[in-house]
């Protein structure tokens, strides 16, 4: 018999390292022709940080993303951006790039302000032009750059950002993260009570990322996280015997594949973080965190039997179902 169940999982996740400084730096060169070079130590391991950092630089400087080149992760040329971990790079390196862009921009705006006899604070850059009080002016960024160079001014920026945290004392008191991301996932699953096989049918994943700099990329993180979470809940386990791994191969350590994928509905919730670049926080790790919890709750909903150890394998399910009725399925005790 097939039984359906629905489960909910929530999570919060501190962005950046726990209660310790973890700065990132960036250099930026706004070149003569208005194109931009960003140097960052931030390693893009597939999550898309170089794209997001290019968008942040482009957004701050009012240029197209095609005009930004990000050189990332080369200690010979780029400043330290810390680890690509802790879901920190959009927030921390994003801020570093934003600050570097702003520093270069300030030189430019100051020069533009002189040309236009305006206050620099009234000006911004967009589409290669200087804008004043929300109106496009004929003055182009390139013209301002030429004016800068004529006076021997370079438009370089460097920025670094360290999230505001405090260490934790011996009772754990402190503010270990500058900001947190949040998520709720709902899983709909089906259990075959004869084979113990669990199929995840649908996942709804709502993630507060502050602001999605690149929504498709955020969705990609969420979908990938959900699938990794499915593996964590149902499939994956490193088998150890006296310290030795018994299944060090893809043939034996199984990951979910395309035919195991449920419908995944990613919902991006934007509660902007005022200290984040354009309001952004992070999503890399949050994407995975509530999935196993939601699936475990869905299995409990379907079967009336709860599992306390991961992964929830078909063997465990059949064993629990056959034991059901002898008191193994406990409900919460009311005192």
């Amino acid at each position: 018999m097939k039984k359906r169940g629905i489960g909910v999982g929530c999570m919060f996740y501190g962005i950046g390292n726990t209660g310790m400084p973890n700065p990132a730096g960036a250099f930026l060169d706004l070149t003569d022709d208005g194109t931009v070079l960003v140097l960052t130590g931030c390693a893009d391991i597939g999550q898309g940080s170089s794209t997001v950092l290019a968008q942040i630089a482009a957004g701050e400087l009012g240029v197209n993303i095609e005009d930004v080149l990000v050189v990332a992760g080369d200690t010979g040329v780029s400043p330290d951006a810390g680890a690509t971990s802790a879901s920190r790079q959009t927030y921390i390196s994003g801020n570093a790039v934003l600050l570097a862009a702003r520093q270069a921009k300030e030189v430019l705006l100051e020069e533009a302000a002189g040309i236009m006899a305006a206050a620099a604070s009234d000006l911004c850059l967009r589409d290669g032009h200087v804008w004043r009080a929300g109106e496009k002016t004929p003055l182009t960024v390139k013209e301002v750059l030429a004016a800068c160079r004529k006076k021997g001014k370079l438009t370089l920026g460097s920025g670094w950002f360290n999230p505001e945290t405090t260490g934790m004392d011996e009772t754990g008191r402190g503010a270990p993260y500058a900001t947190y991301s949040y998520a709720t996932q709902v899983a709909e699953i089906e259990v075959d009570t004869e084979t113990g096989k669990v199929s995840v049918l649908r996942l709804v994943a709502a993630h507060d990322v502050g602001r999605a700099i690149n929504p498709k990329s955020v969705e990609g993180q969420i979908e990938g996280g959900c699938l990794m979470g499915i593996g964590y809940a149902l499939l994956e386990e490193v088998k150890l015997t006296e310290g030795r791994i018994g299944n060090p191969r893809y043939a034996e350590y199984l990951l979910p594949m395309s035919l195991d994928v449920p419908e995944i509905h990613a919902i991006i919730v934007e509660e902007p973080e005022i200290t984040g670049p354009f309001g952004a926080k992070g999503v890399g790790e949050p994407a995975l965190i509530p999935t196993a919890a939601a699936i475990a709750n869905a299995v409990a909903d379907a079967l009336g039997v709860r599992f306390y150890d991961l992964p929830i394998t078909p063997e465990k399910i059949l064993a629990a179902l056959s034991a059901k009725g002898d008191g193994s399925a406990r409900m919460g005790e009311i005192t």
Binding site: E223, L227, M257, S258
Partner: peptide, 20 residues
């Protein structure tokens, strides 16, 4: 058919949704 066509290819990043 699409899922079957890529069912011999592992991806650990995307969750396959965007590949499909």
């Amino acid at each position: 058919a699409i899922k079957t066509a890529v069912s011999g290819n592992l991806c650990r990043c995307t969750g396959y949704i965007k590949i499909i």
